[in-house]
């Protein structure tokens, strides 16, 4: 279950995400994620994948169901990785696009000072239009914020 602190991070602070899959030959592939939603039971997530990163995605997921999604708040670099098992996919809906629009605005606000000379429309274009929603069961959560604790498994907790 995704804890409340990480849920708040996902819903209020995070602004960048990327998914990783692999094919039957264990070749890794990446897929830009422009938005996300946590299921009501906090055990599933839905990632909204940018259109240009969908080729091959569904085929790999249906073949092996393996998925990892890293979500970061830029520029603070607070980062978590969610690993899990593919459940389903569908085209994005209007309410998914609204989530992506919120994340896009959050992203532009966060980067405005670092890219003062770049027009907002160009910064905003970084958060691509989504075309596919991928739901997955979250089995593990890892801390990935740079530092000595990076790589620590948070969910399920590591037995000491």
């Amino acid at each position: 279950m995704i804890p409340g602190k990480i849920l708040r991070f996902l819903e209020q602070h995070a602004n960048v995400a990327f998914a990783g899959t692999r094919n039957r030959d264990l070749v890794p592939h990446g897929h830009k994620v422009c938005g996300w939603r946590v299921g009501a039971d906090q055990r599933t997530m839905t990632a909204f994948v940018a259109e240009e990163f969908t080729p091959g995605l569904v085929e790999s997921l249906r073949e092996n169901r393996e998925l990892a999604v890293t979500v970061e708040e830029f520029p603070s670099h607070e980062t978590y990785q969610f690993k899990g098992r593919y459940l389903s996919d569908r085209p994005v809906r209007h309410d998914d696009v609204e989530i992506v629009d919120r994340i896009r605005r959050r992203f532009v606000r966060s980067l405005r000072s670092m890219y003062a000379e770049v027009p907002e429309s160009i910064l905003g274009a970084f958060v691509s239009n989504p075309s596919l929603a991928v739901e997955f069961e979250v089995l593990e959560v890892y801390l990935q914020t740079p530092g000595p604790g990076a790589g620590t498994r948070l969910i399920p907790p590591v037995e000491s």
């Binding site: 264990l26 092996n64 393996e66 990892a68 890293t70 690993k83 990935q144």
Partner: peptide
């Protein structure tokens, strides 16, 4: 990984 688990990182 060799056992087929993808991993993403910044």
């Amino acid at each position: 990984s060799a056992d087929g688990k993808p991993n993403t990182t910044v």
